[in-house]
């Protein structure tokens, strides 16, 4: 399928918070989960149209297990955004958010948008993390926040995220016309132009 832009979003968070479920909700892909646990990373994609342009949102759904942590770290590069997910029925998944955030900040480029998602908000009776806590955490760390379990809500939010990515890409294009070529070609502008960022961040 042809597209004008490709944006990469990475889903991170503890194991079992429902990352793969979010991916399934967001994409129409019918994949057969051969294994219950994600190995390394799985992919999903969805086309959206902004300004008459076809935009491919490519989701990298990472494994939450500790063993895959270092592998996940190598996948941040070039992501336009990250979906940091916790389970509102499990306090520990909320407590681990800081380490996830550190990972994300350290291995991605500085202008990556991070969205905090409190998942499984349909299980109100088992709630362990208050919505206000999630909001406070997001405010403190400059994240976009939402609680969800609904597909429509997620798709709408992703669309807004994509809009931000488009805008930021346009800004970069205005600054450096060469970026546009890369962006249109594939893999999103961020992949290439942020390589230097990442390298610098690692060294620093």
């Amino acid at each position: 399928m042809a597209y004008a832009y490709l944006f990469k979003y990475i889903i991170i968070g503890d194991t079992g918070v429902g990352k793969s479920c979010l991916l399934l909700q967001f994409t129409d892909k019918r994949f057969q989960p051969v294994h219950d646990l994600t190995i390394g990373v799985e992919f999903g994609a969805r086309m959206i149209t902004i300004d008459g342009k076809q935009i491919k949102l490519q989701i990298w759904d990472t494994a939450g297990q500790e063993a895959f942590r270092s592998i996940t770290r190598s996948y941040y590069r070039g992501a336009a955004g990250a979906l940091l997910v916790y389970d509102i029925t499990r306090r520990d998944t909320f407590n681990h958010l800081t380490t996830w955030l550190e990972d994300a900040r350290q291995h991605s480029n500085s202008n990556m948008v991070i969205m905090l998602i409190g998942n499984k908000s349909d299980l109100e009776s088992r709630r362990e993390v208050k919505k206000e806590e999630g909001e406070a955490f997001a405010r403190e760390h400059g994240l976009v926040f939402m609680e969800t379990f609904k597909r429509e809500c997620l798709i709408l939010t992703m669309r807004r995220m994509a809009l931000r990515s488009v805008l930021s890409t346009r800004r970069q294009e205005a600054l450096a016309p060469a970026v546009r070529v890369l962006a249109v070609q594939r893999a999103g502008a961020a992949v290439r132009c942020c390589a230097a960022h990442t390298e610098r961040a690692k060294r620093g």
């Binding site: 390394g40 063993a67 895959f68 592998i71």
Partner: peptide, 9 residues
């Protein structure tokens, strides 16, 4: 790709 990931863990 999958093999590489599994080898690493």
């Amino acid at each position: 790709h999958k093999t590489a990931e599994m080898l690493l863990v």
